[in-house]
C-alpha cells in the first residue's frame, strides 16, 4: 500500500513539474515571440512591464482573467464554453507521454522520467491532436458568427488534411524504432538521432506540425486579414486565453515531438536530459517564430495542394524507401 501511495506522490510530483514547466514556458514563449518578432522587425518589443518586459506574461494573464467573459446571445452556450477547454487540455495532455530524461533509480526502484509510458504513446499523441480539432471546429460553430464559422471550418479541414501527412511521415520512425512507445523511440536513437537517417520524414513532419499548430504560414483558421480572428473571434477574457494558451502549449508539444522523433528526445552530451529536451523545444519554438517573422500566409488552395499533393505522396514514398532499406539491411 505504501508503495502505491509513494508511486502516486511521485506521479503527482512529475505531473506538477511538467505542468509548471509547460505553463511557464507557454507564458514566456509569448514574451519571447513578441520580443523576437520585434527584433526581427527592428523594433524593441514589449518592454514596459518590468525590465525587458519580463512581467508582460503576468500582466497579460491578469488582463485576460479580469476581462468580462462574453457569451453571445445567439451562441450555443455549452459548446461555446467547452471549446477552449478542449483545445487547451488536449495540448496539455500530450505531455503525459513525453519522456524528459533518463530513468532515475532510487532505492532500487526505477522511476521513469515520463508521466506515463504508454506502449501506444504515438497513437495517443495523434488521438489528442485529432481531438483538438473539435475545439476549433466547435468553437467556431458555437460562436454563431460567420467569421468564426469560416475559421472553424478552415481549421477542421486543414488539421484533418495535415494529420495524414503527420501520421505517415512518422511511420518510418516507428519502423526503425520498432515501437509506438515514445520512450522506446527515444531509446532507439541512442546512437544517432533519426534526423540523420530520415531527413525527408523530418521535413514533412515539421511542415505538417506547423500546419497542425495553425501558425503562420498556416494560420488560415485565424487569418486576421480576412476573418478578424477566425474561430475565436467571439471569445473574450480567459476563454480566449485558453485558446491562446493552447496554441503556445501546442508549439511546445510539437517541439517536444520533433525532439522525441528525430532529435533523440532528452538525449545529448554533457547536460542532463530535461535540459536538453527544453533546449530542443525552445529551439524549435524560436525557429517557428523566425518562420512567422519571414513567411506570408498560404492561400487556401496552396495549403491543400501542399498537404495532399506533395506531403502525403512524399511521406508514402519515404515509407516505401525506408521499408526497402530495412528489409535490405
Amino acid at each position: 500500500m505504501w508503495l502505491w501511495t509513494l508511486g502516486y506522490f511521485i506521479l503527482m510530483a512529475k505531473i506538477t513539474l511538467v505542468l509548471t514547466v509547460v505553463l511557464l514556458l507557454a507564458a514566456y514563449l509569448v514574451l519571447v515571440e513578441r520580443k523576437l518578432l520585434g527584433r526581427f522587425q527592428a523594433r524593441i518589443g514589449p518592454n514596459r512591464a518590468g525590465i525587458f518586459g519580463i512581467l508582460q506574461p503576468i500582466a497579460d494573464g491578469i488582463k485576460l482573467l479580469v476581462k468580462e467573459d462574453v457569451v453571445l446571445d445567439g451562441a450555443e452556450r455549452g459548446i461555446f464554453q467547452l471549446a477552449p477547454v478542449i483545445v487547451a487540455s488536449m495540448a496539455l495532455l500530450t505531455f503525459a507521454i513525453i519522456p524528459f530524461g533518463k530513468p532515475i533509480i532510487i532505492g532500487g526502484h526505477e522511476i521513469p522520467m515520463v508521466i506515463s509510458d504508454i506502449n501506444v504513446g504515438l497513437l495517443y499523441a495523434f488521438a489528442l491532436t485529432s481531438l483538438s480539432v473539435y475545439g476549433v471546429a466547435l468553437g467556431g460553430w458555437a460562436s454563431n458568427s460567420k467569421y468564426a464559422l469560416l475559421g472553424g471550418i478552415r481549421g477542421a479541414a486543414q488539421m484533418i488534411s495535415y494529420e495524414l501527412a503527420l501520421g505517415l511521415s512518422i511511420v518510418p520512425v516507428v519502423m526503425m524504432a520498432g515501437s509506438f512507445s515514445l520512450v522506446e523511440i527515444v531509446n532507439a536513437q541512442a546512437k544517432w538521432p533519426f534526423i540523420i537517417v530520415q531527413p525527408l520524414a523530418f521535413i514533412i513532419f515539421f511542415i505538417s506540425a506547423l500546419a497542425e499548430s495553425k501558425r503562420i504560414p498556416f494560420d488560415m483558421p485565424e487569418a486576421e486579414a480576412e476573418l478578424g480572428a477566425g474561430y475565436h473571434i467571439e471569445y473574450s477574457g480567459m476563454r480566449f486565453g485558453l485558446f491562446f494558451l493552447g496554441e503556445y502549449v501546442q508549439m511546445q508539444v510539437l517541439g517536444a515531438l520533433i525532439a522525441v522523433f528525430f532529435l533523440g528526445g532528452w538525449r545529448g552530451p554533457f547536460l542532463p536530459g530535461p535540459i536538453w529536451l527544453l533546449i530542443k523545444i525552445i529551439g524549435f519554438s524560436i525557429i517557428m517564430v523566425w518562420i512567422r517573422a519571414t513567411l506570408p500566409r498560404f492561400r487556401y488552395d496552396q495549403l491543400m495542394t501542399l498537404g495532399w499533393k506533395i506531403l502525403i505522396p512524399a511521406a508514402l514514398i519515404n515509407i516505401v524507401i525506408t521499408g526497402v532499406f530495412i528489409v535490405a539491411f
Binding site: L36, R39, F40, A42, R43, I44, W290, A293, T294
Partner: peptide
C-alpha cells in the same frame, strides 16, 4: 529577417 535580428531596434 535574421539579419534584422542583429541590427538592433530603431524604436
Amino acid at each position: 529577417t535574421l539579419k534584422n535580428l542583429f541590427r538592433g531596434p530603431f524604436t
